[in-house]
């Protein structure tokens, strides 16, 4: 099994009633960890996931998703850290449970964001006084 892949998916209004994730697991042998999501009938929806599985299975699963007009943002998390807006105060470090937000350079206290560690709890969005952490949805 390869390194888990992060992705977020946008669902058009028409597809929110289909059990798509169920098929990803059952038909493509994928392990799916849902970070967060909003799937409401008759509304656009999103899912932010971590996907583990065989690379070929993932590719087949993505083809399956595309057939439903689901927009795939592979390798991306639904949380954006805007380095230019960040003032590097480090206030978020006390609230980030996985240290995705951390001091990259201890001497100059320069913040860094490790996307692979982000689980999209959105604590940083709540705590950052400068709006440096932005949820994509």
């Amino acid at each position: 099994m390869n390194t888990p892949l992060k992705a977020y998916l946008y669902f058009p209004k028409s597809e929110t009633e289909k059990p798509i994730i169920c098929h990803l697991i059952r038909d493509f042998n994928l392990d799916i960890n849902i970070f967060r999501g909003k799937i409401t009938p008759d509304e656009e929806g999103y899912l932010s996931l971590q996907i583990s599985g065989d690379a070929q299975d993932i590719e087949r699963a993505f083809d399956y998703l595309r057939a439903f007009n689901v927009e795939i943002h592979a390798g991306a998390v639904g949380l954006m850290w805007d380095a230019a807006r960040c003032t590097h105060c480090g206030h978020c470090t006390a609230h980030c449970p996985t240290d995705a937000l951390h001091f990259g350079d201890a001497r100059t206290r320069t913040m860094a964001f490790d996307e692979t560690r982000c689980i999209e709890c959105l604590a940083c969005v709540t705590h950052c006084p400068f709006g440096a952490c932005i949820s994509n949805f």
Binding site: T87, H88, C89, G90, C92, T110, P129
Partner: peptide, 13 residues
């Protein structure tokens, strides 16, 4: 207890 700063040492530097 976890501690964090509201002031930026990075920017002050």
């Amino acid at each position: 207890v976890t501690v964090s700063s509201m002031s930026s040492y990075h920017k002050a530097l």
